[in-house]
Write a protein that binds this DNA or RNA. Structure first.
Length: 239
DNA sequence: GTCCGGCACT
DNA sequence: AGTGCGGGAC
């Protein structure tokens, strides 16, 4: 029996409200999502600030911008060979199908919209769901590497397939976009601060419900079969 | 060295 | 399933 509401409450209690997505407009949310891969949010913020300062942060302007100029502005976000092309491509698509109007763009069937997003270069499932949730305001659950690691350690699922994990959450939570958005943000906070590659289980707010923590009880106590050397080898981080 | 709020190639 | 994409922060 997995009580997601209880886990949510404990994460919220430990980390507080996350205020996602930190952007002024829906279009900024989308630009941020497209620039996010393999970088930190502060770098994305820097890149968006460059676009704003230059006054080019509109779908029409970005859709018509030469790649080298775009590259110079979003350089802080890294992966500069791919991201400018993807950002411009998305804007061209947005202008094409909705005249750059996000109200019109999102005012369509969810399933069709998601498939359309996934067909665009640079938009995989996580980016598509981030856009649909945080910009489109659809109740769709976002899965990322933190979610996979966290859920597997908790013992909620053994697999790492995006759609299956997404379904795990969506079948257990009422479709509520604010709650979905906050839950994902809390999982990210948890993954950064506690459920790291080397987990800080001793001060984890949900360790009482965690299979990984339970499975390592003998190692924590130091009275199990596994000695100190093996503990280090297995990379369990004991506070 | 590893890590970033991934994705598209092979 | 493995790897290129990039460079700053730690």
């Amino acid at each position: 029996m997995v009580d997601l509401a209880a886990v949510f409450a404990r994460l919220e209690g430990a980390y507080g409200p996350q205020h996602w997505w930190p952007a002024e407009t829906r279009f900024e949310v989308i630009v941020g999502a497209l620039l996010m891969a393999q970088t930190s949010w502060s770098k994305v913020t820097e890149a968006i600030a460059n676009l704003k300062r230059a006054g080019v942060l509109t779908p029409q302007t970005l859709a018509a911008m030469p790649i080298p100029r775009l590259r110079a502005m979003i350089r802080p976000a890294g992966l500069y060979r791919t991201k400018p092309r993807r950002l411009r491509g998305f804007c061209q698509h947005l202008v094409q199908v909705a005249d750059g109007d996000l109200d019109r763009f999102f005012a369509r069937d969810f399933g069709a919209l998601r498939r359309e997003l996934l067909s665009l270069d640079g938009v995989g499932p996580e980016t598509a769901d981030s856009i649909l949730l945080y910009a489109g305001r659809f109740p769709t659950f976002v899965v990322d590497a933190y979610t996979v690691r966290f859920g597997r350690r908790m013992g909620w699922f053994p697999y790492d397939r995006y759609d299956s994990i997404k379904a795990f959450f969506e079948t257990r939570l009422r479709p509520d976009r604010d709650r979905y958005g906050e839950f994902h943000a809390l999982i990210v906070a948890h993954g950064k601060r506690t459920c790291r590659p080397r987990p800080l289980c001793a001060r984890c707010p949900v360790n009482a419900a965690c299979a990984f923590y339970a499975g390592n009880e003998d190692k924590r106590s130091g009275r199990g079969k596994i000695g100190d050397q093996a503990k280090r080898r297995h990379r369990f981080y004991i506070e």
